[in-house]
Structure formats: structure tokens, C-alpha cells
């Protein structure tokens, strides 16, 4: 199975995994990596990837494009089979298991997760108004 690491600032990663597991049950081969402000996570991240990769690659879900966590994740592209997707949100987390049951690789999973995340953000009140009209 493709591994997943959620890596974010603060305690967001831990809470995203915990909340998603509360909704759909255990997320196998998934790890939350909280990055305290003011710490260097390069070695921690490299070790986490090595630990969770069962040979089919790892998708790294990060919070902010341009953020330090994302930058460190991107620096692993040259040395490991990883894909990096930014803007992680709960709808993406809830699709992790279902999308990993398919036979695709890490690249396919990353693209599917990005699409899920993007589709999940809407102005819901606008949609209600359109429905009414």
C-alpha cells in the first residue's frame, strides 16, 4: 500500500488524522508529522518516509505551498519515491483509504487527492442561493 504522511505546522496533522479516523475508522500506513515552529525537520521527515515506504512510494500531504514543511518535502523528490500535495483538508483525508484501494501508483494517488481537495471547497451558501433561484 502507498504510504501517507501528513506534515503540517502546529498540531494540524495530528488532528486531521485523528478526526478522519473518527469518521471512517483506522487509516493504515498513515502518519501524522507535526512540525513545531522553530525546528528543523529534514532528518525527521527523511526517517519517517523511509519507515512508512513499503516499496510503492509515499504521498506527503502538507498545509501550505511555499511553507517550510512543503519546501522540506519537495527537497526529498530527488532521493525518494515521494509525491507532495499541498493544502491538505479533511475531505482529502476521508478519501485516503478508498483511493488507495485502487491499483494506481503514488503519482496517481497524489493527483486524485489534489482533485478531491479542490472540489471540496465551495461557497456552499452560494450553491443554496442558486438552488433557490
Amino acid at each position: 500500500m502507498i504510504g501517507v504522511i501528513v506534515a503540517t505546522h502546529g498540531k494540524l496533522a495530528q488532528e486531521l488524522v485523528r478526526t478522519a479516523e473518527g469518521v471512517i475508522g483506522p487509516l493504515p500506513q498513515t502518519r501524522a508529522l507535526d512540525v513545531p515552529f522553530g525546528s528543523d525537520i529534514h532528518d525527521v521527515l527523511r526517517a519517517a518516509v523511509a519507515q512508512i515506504d513499503s516499496g510503492t512510494g509515499v504521498v506527503l500531504l502538507t498545509d501550505l505551498l511555499g511553507g517550510s514543511t512543503t519546501n522540506v518535502c519537495l527537497s526529498l523528490l530527488a532521493e525518494r519515491n515521494v509525491e507532495v500535495v499541498t493544502g491538505v483538508n479533511l475531505p482529502m483525508m476521508l478519501k485516503l483509504n478508498a483511493l488507495r484501494e485502487g491499483s494506481g501508483g503514488a503519482i496517481e494517488l497524489a493527483r486524485a487527492l489534489a482533485a478531491v481537495g479542490q472540489r471540496s471547497i465551495v461557497d456552499a451558501s452560494d450553491l443554496m442561493r442558486e438552488k433557490k433561484a
Binding site: 505551498l65 511555499g66 512543503t70 519537495l74 527537497s75 523528490l77 530527488a78
Partner: peptide, 11 residues
């Protein structure tokens, strides 16, 4: 080059 590309992504 990788650092440069990563940092250019988010400008």
C-alpha cells in the same frame, strides 16, 4: 536547482 524550483512555486 531543486531548492530554487521549490521556492519559485509559491511566489
Amino acid at each position: 536547482a531543486l531548492t530554487r524550483m521549490a521556492m519559485e512555486l509559491a511566489l
